[in-house]
Design a binder for these strands. Structure first.
Length: 880
RNA sequence: GCCAAAGUGGUGGAAUUGGUAGACACGCUGGACUCAAAAUCCAGUGCUGGCAACAGCGUGUGGGUUCGAGUCCCACCUUUGGUACCA
């Protein structure tokens, strides 16, 4: 159910050509059309991956969506409640008459104080609006937000990565997943799962809980107030100006006539800037809009500005700026000559930065003299007392855009009536299948392809359908539950199956899912838990991030000539005889120092930076990317001297078609067999670690497999003895059982393979061919080398599969050693080794160790201060 | 900048969680078998000095704790992921 990249081609284009539903097509079809599409020279923009295409599965994804749609978050109960309950309460409470009960229930959406602060007209508007409450208060909200769509009218900025087509960001009414309702519980739940600390921290940071205050600033001459969120209410007396996000609702209203031209110009500037530009260039920009807020405590006039550095989506989209205690505010104030009032005295905390929450408050009326932490709570108190705002917890986590303007994906099981009120389709009408079509081009104004289908949009009786589809994360948020009962057509999984399987014991996945997929799945799971559909609070009990097998990416740089005293290079990627033509799209000249921002070459900027770091003498060189074909063997072998004309650079990175560094496992299997390949992947290193694929070491594993086979055969003939094994042979076996068992539990497969190698080497040395040893060993090795073990198991005369056989059991009695080789150390340095029997006491060892003749020379002329004996570890003699 | 992870031979990596650093492999060197090669087998292989016995040094750098540090603490350097004006 996860979206997958099918040969790097989007499903839409595939369907255009074939008319075949990708999920139902065969691999061969795919390959055939892949070739055709390439010939046609398609480039693609609006989708790279297939969404879930099996209606029997996505029926339940749609059903869960209807649950999310018909439930709301009840703050005081901290769980999901059906919206219908809420509506009933309103209906019985009479038109516009807000009784306490209704009020309480409404708390799930607005706090009591928020409600109080709404104007009378807004309150009745909300009540009159209750019929369309679904739009606003469910776990999925139908509201406006930015989406990235193909610009089919005008080129604005930025081009798509794949085809170079222009895209734009556009506000559209879309579905949003209200994951923020679960922010607190998603954060708390992290404690109870066995994930790596790194991953837990990443999720915690992503949720980004911060405690602070919501403060409402009155505006001179207006009834409205500006709401700001701050984690530093203690610095409120240092607030010398306010900044609104350029997209803030009040900007239009508050801008004075004399400031209008400047503001319009600034707004135009902001909207012209692409995300990339904003990120690359963080220069301080802003504009005064002419209006003033009134400081809630002092009543001073506080000028209102707009500025790019305030984000519409975080907090309230507005800040009180305290230049004395915030780096960004200070930079802004400095640039625009806004006064700075120091409010925190940090003289007692040398080395503390502006952001550190330490110091004593000054210039701040009733806060003077307090330490920062006290001042924060004191300020919150006062703010609440005077009705200026309240303490508030804010989360970085934002509601997730759940609409995609493309063809493939689960259609939304929602109909809008003629008044625009959404209704969920009942389960009997699911799945709502995607309509068949041959027209996959985007709709007008960046709308999705479905909007072009009149028969889809109009559902009859004045009802209309949503034209967007769900993202790939929809299906992936719960697919593991479907595995528990995959063929059930009455429910997404039966209660029996759910209570038997519960949740995922071990989830192995890449760390790229750290915040998105893993967070959404946790949210859905908790939601289903609240509704009683699952029995656990967390979907994935234990999680391991496997590393990625990487490839080596090679680059080549050719010193071409000297131009105006500058070195000029031809640079290129390479790795195979297929050449690089396709991958260097636009030849560009890069003067690295002055113009390095415009690279569109295969050899990316990072590599160039690395190159410069390595060879600083070429700092001022000119790099020219070329379409020419470089072969590895074209130039003299790797030379790095500056008099040479060729330099090579390589780096380790993802295996990808675009780098020509993909190693096909089939080839390795063909050369060495599946068992060797499998065991070698395990042997390469720790599971969690990414590592480059390097076939050099595979010989060792291959030899091991052959040696293991050799234990059973002399030439072609099976030669197995039924003799009783010696103690030593049993010891070798059971030592291996112990080690392998422990390693499997710790997911340390590389050391398990090494234990097998040691075992086989030891058995060869003593020429052991005994069934009583080898048969358990076959069973033990079978998860690591399943095919050869199955073969040997059958040859040993067993009827059923080795994979169904009883796993060998450890007998610790074979592991008892009667002596131990103690390293004898002088002051912690090993000088000698001596064996002492296991029964020997500490005192006896101590006494003997100091008498060892070989140790004598180290003790000469010194006093023995202390002798430390650690049983079964070592002996340390401390001398002075 | 911030968050996270990691730095051990020529290479991939071990190290019982504070107790013999370099297991197991690859590579390399020498040898056996062979007319020869491949395959296989045997021996050696951290660095430096020495014929050797042996000695000194050695887990990114500098300091600290300890009888004892790859492992713990402090500061720094480097690399790899992630993230980005989060108020």
């Amino acid at each position: 159910p996860m979206g997958f990249d099918a040969f790097g081609l989007p499903a839409e284009e595939y369907a255009i050509q074939t008319g075949i539903h990708p999920a139902r097509s065969t691999q061969d079809n795919m390959k055939m059309y892949r070739v055709q599409l390439k010939k046609l020279g398609f480039s693609f923009d609006w989708s790279r991956s297939f969404a879930t295409c099996d209606p029997n599965y996505y029926k339940w994804t749609q059903w869960i969506f209807t649950l999310l749609f018909t439930h709301y978050y009840h703050k005081s109960e901290e769980k999901a409640r059906p919206i219908t309950e809420l509506l009933q309460i309103f209906e019985t409470s009479g038109n516009g008459d807000i009784n306490k009960k209704a009020f309480h229930s409404y708390e799930g959406i607005f706090s009591a104080d928020e409600w109080k602060n709404f104007s009378r007209s807004k309150q009745s508007e909300i009540l009159a609006d209750y019929r369309i409450a679904y739009r606003k208060i469910g776990y999925v909200n139908w509201c406006e937000g930015l989406g990235t769509v193909l610009a089919n009218d005008q080129i604005k900025d930025g081009v798509s990565e794949r085809g170079g087509h222009p895209v734009e960001r556009k506000a559209m009414t879309q579905w949003y997943l209200r994951i923020t309702a679960y922010a607190d519980r998603l954060l708390l739940g992290i404690r109870n799962i066995e994930w790596s600390d790194a991953l837990k921290t990443m999720q915690a940071n992503w949720i980004g809980r911060s405690e602070g205050a919501l403060i409402r600033f009155p505006i001179e001459g207006y009834d409205e107030r500006i709401e700001v969120f701050t984690t530093r209410p203690d610095t409120i007396f240092g607030a010398t100006y306010m900044v609104l996000a350029p997209e803030h609702d009040l900007v239009e209203k508050l801008t004075t006539a004399d400031r209008r031209p400047g503001v319009d110009e600034y707004l135009a500037y902001v909207s012209s800037r692409s995300e990339i530009e904003r990120m690359a260039d963080k220069s301080v920009t802003g504009e005064f809009i002419g209006a003033y807020a009134l400081h809630p405590f002092t009543g001073d006039r506080v000028p209102i500005w707009i500025g790019e550095y305030v984000l519409k989506d975080y907090g309230t989209g507005a800040i009180m700026a305290v230049p004395s205690d915030d780096d960004r505010d200070l930079a802004f104030a400095t640039k625009f000559n806004i006064p700075v009032i120091p409010v925190i005295d940090k003289s007692e905390y040398p080395g503390a930065t502006l952001a550190d929450k330490v110091g004593k408050v000054i210039n701040s009326d009733f806060l003077n003299g307090l330490e920062v932490p006290e001042a924060i709570s004191r300020a919150c108190e006062e703010i609440e007392k005077r009705g200026l705002g309240e303490a508030k917890v804010n989360y970085k986590l934002r509601d997730a855009n759940f609409s995609r303007q493309r063809y493939w994906g689960e259609p939304f099981p929602i109909l809008f009536d003629k008044d625009g009120v959404p209704e969920a389709l009942p389960l009997e009408q699911l799945p709502l299948e995607l309509p068949k079509t041959k027209d996959f081009k985007p709709g007008v104004g960046g709308k999705s392809p479905l909007s072009r289908l009149e028969s889809w949009v109009n559902a009859g009786d004045g009802y209309t359908r949503v034209t967007d589809v769900m993202p790939a994360v929809a299906g992936s948020s719960w697919y593991y539950l479907r595995y528990m009962d995959p063929h059930n057509d009455k429910a997404f999984a039966s209660p029996e199956a759910i209570s038997y399987w519960q949740n995922v014991d071990l989830y192995v996945g890449g760390s790229e899912h750290a915040v998105a997929h893993l967070l959404y799945a946790r949210f859905w799971h908790k939601f289903l838990y609240d509704l009683g559909y699952v029995t656990t609070e967390e979907p994935f009990k234990k999680l391991i991030n496997q590393g990625m097998i990487q490839g080596v990416i090679e680059y080549m740089i050719l010193l071409k000539e000297k131009v105006d005293g500058h070195h000029k290079f031809l640079c290129s990627g390479l790795a195979s005889d297929r050449g690089i033509e396709d991958y260097v799209r636009i030849p560009v000249h890069i003067d690295f120092v002055n113009d390095y921002g415009n690279s569109d070459s295969f050899m990316d900027l990072n590599s160039l930076r690395k190159f410069i770091k390595w060879r600083p003498e070429f700092k001022n060189a000119i790099f020219e990317c070329t379409k020419g074909v470089f072969h590895k063997g074209m130039f003299s072998p790797k030379s790095t001297a500056s008099d040479s004309h060729l330099l090579t650079l390589s780096e380790v990175g993802k295996m990808s078609k675009r780098y020509y560094n993909v190693v096909n496992p089939d080839d390795v299997v063909k050369d060495y067999g599946a068992d060797t390949f499998r065991a070698y992947e395990m042997f390469l290193g720790p599971l969690e670690q990414s590592k480059p694929w390097d076939t050099q070491g595979i010989e060792g594993v291959s030899k091991f497999i052959r040696k293991f086979w050799g234990l059973f055969f002399t030439g072609e003939n099976l030669e197995i003895s039924d003799a009783t094994p010696t103690t030593q042979e049993f010891k070798i076996l059971h030592r291996t059982i112990q080690k392998v068992e422990k390693d499997i539990e710790a997911f340390s497969f590389n050391t398990a393979v090494s234990a097998f190698m040691i075992c086989v080497n030891d058995l060869r040395k003593i020429d052991c061919h005994k069934r009583a040893i080898l048969e358990p060993l076959v069973r033990l090795l079978s998860p690591f080398a399943p095919f050869i073990c199955e073969e040997l198991w059958q040859r040993l005369g067993n009827e059923s599969s080795v994979h169904l056989a009883q796993y060998p059991e450890l007998d610790p009695s074979y592991l008892v050693e009667d002596s131990f080789d103690y390293p004898i150390c002088i002051n912690g340095k090993k000088r000698h080794v001596k064996a002492y029997s296991s029964g020997m006491g500490k005192e006896d060892i101590m006494a003997d160790a100091t008498q060892i003749p070989e140790i004598g020379k180290w003790l000469e002329g010194k006093n023995v201060v202390k002798v430390i004996v650690v049983p079964k570890r070592m002996v340390n003699i401390v001398v002075k």
